[in-house]
Design a protein around this nucleic acid. Structure first.
Length: 201
DNA sequence: CAAACGATTTTCT
DNA sequence: GAAAATCGTTTGG
């Protein structure tokens, strides 16, 4: 079933990031269904998070969607070519979001492959925020869309990820703010081949 | 109006 | 493992 709005509007973005693991991200682009299980996420605590576009309360035309109500899709184009898919959480005017960093392909794998003309290696198909977005057909035009219905939805498959199967990554390189240095903002499912081998963890 | 940067991925060494 | 590619957004003049 599709996750209800109240799932997204809770205030603990970190907890939402954790609970999104194991959920199924479904997109319907041009009538073609593609889906995958979320295996890696990263929480962005808005004004508190240096890595966030909304750090310090910054608000621009691009980040405006981040201030929307929970349950909204925020798609950001990075490096000119990579689409990063985020799930906006919390209530309106609070720029919290969860970046989906990796999914395990379920449906429409062949379509994903064709979208990424070169992608021959399956593990690399959806491992990484930019890669998975392209594979699922998510583009910047989808920013601001509701995740409760429409082209992009997130469903609860009934699969429950045990806490011991969740790998928690702490932010590094924060030497002046000790509290933040231990902030567990990155989450992934242990031993899943579709988790990106990014440098962050 | 013009210059610099970035929540990354891919490819070459 | 390291460097390049690439362009919309942001910031400065």
């Amino acid at each position: 079933m599709i996750l209800p709005e109240r799932f997204y509007t809770r205030k603990n973005v970190v907890q939402i990031a954790k609970e999104l693991l194991g959920k199924k991200l479904v997109t319907v682009i041009d009538g073609v269904v593609t889906s995958g299980i979320i295996v890696e996420t990263e929480a962005y605590a808005g004004i508190t998070d240096k890595a966030s576009h909304a750090y310090g309360g910054r608000r621009t035309a691009r980040t405006e969607t981040m201030y929307a109500q929970g349950g909204t899709a925020y798609v950001y184009l990075c490096y000119g070519i990579h689409h990063l898919f985020n799930v906006v959480t919390n209530v309106e005017d609070v720029p919290h979001a969860v970046l989906i960093r990796g999914v395990e392909p379920i449906e429409g794998v062949e379509v994903m492959l064709s979208r990424k003309k070169k992608a021959k290696r399956i593990p690399n198909l959806t491992a990484g925020p930019g890669a998975l977005s392209e594979a699922l057909g998510i583009k910047t035009i989808h920013t601001g869309l509701s995740l409760l219905s429409g082209s992009i939805t997130i469903e609860d498959t009934g699969v429950k990820v045990r806490p011991k199967d969740i790998k928690i990554g702490t932010r590094v390189g924060v030497d002046y703010a000790e509290e933040d240095a231990y902030a567990p903002y990155r989450f992934s499912i242990k031993d899943n081949p579709y988790v990106s081998k990014g440098k962050g963890l």
